[in-house]
Design a protein around this nucleic acid. Structure first.
Lengths: 127, 127
DNA sequence: AGTTCACTTCGATGGATGTCAAAGTGTTGG
DNA sequence: CCAACACTTTGACATCCATCGAAGTGAACT
């Protein structure tokens, strides 16, 4: 048991496909939930709280897997999803970290002055 | 002169929108060309070599700008595009670097053994 | 003033995509 | 063996999106 569903090999993971897979609020939420949970977790647990029907969730898991973002293994009657951290980091270093890191809350104008990061210099040098 | 076209403020740049903007081969090519060129450059020069018509190019520039990825200024009868490095790095640190870095060529099986990076450990720790 | 240039806007079109309900598949528990 | 479970597949539908040709806009050049 614990059969693995088909997924692209590491070298055929495509950036545009990866970005397209992540450019959907439901799928981004799924990815962040898997990441936040840490351990391999079944689809149902992750999907709890997302207000779309099971067929739609199933569809989104498939898109993530076929894009090369996740691995899905069948265990009995539930599916276990994991993020392909290593493969993705080899192909696109830093990408997952940038996307899964919780988004900064935009500072409310005038509210509680943020102590630490005022402007911070860009990591990419230009010119 | 040098009027600036409307663009979202830094704090209203949205990740899903940014990813959607980048999840298109033409727009990703445009972004990489702007990045590779370094200096602010006019749209026509960047678009040269891309095999779509001017209306389509114009559309893509608009999508990039409205997503918050670029700044476009009107200078005479041409447009100058620049990437919003600082704003993007504040909102999504590391994202641009991960996406604009030229993609690794998948190692051809058995061909010229790559000297440097064999496997490299993931930057995100899991478990 | 008129033409060329460098785009943009408009309208149309074909294809992809997110969503759901209904039906199907394989698993577990009684 | 049957029912409940945890999904998946299929088919349909509406919407979105990339693309194009045609027409429009404003700047520069002659």
């Amino acid at each position: 048991m614990a059969r693995q569903l088909p997924q692209p090999g590491r070298d055929s993971i495509n950036l545009v496909t990866v970005l397209a897979a992540l450019a959907d609020p439901v799928r981004l939420t799924l990815m962040r939930s898997i990441y936040a949970h840490g351990d391999p977790i079944d689809c149902a647990t992750i999907a709890a709280g997302i207000e779309v029907t099971p067929p739609t969730i199933s569809h989104h898991y498939r898109v993530l897997r076929e894009a090369g973002l996740t691995t899905t293994t069948v265990d009995g009657r539930r599916r276990i999803v994991t993020i392909r951290y290593e493969d993705l980091d080899v192909r696109f270093p830093g990408l997952l970290a940038a996307i899964l890191t919780p988004e900064l809350i935009p500072p409310t104008a005038g509210a509680g002055k943020d102590p630490a990061p005022p402007v911070r210099q860009g990591q990419i040098s230009v010119h």
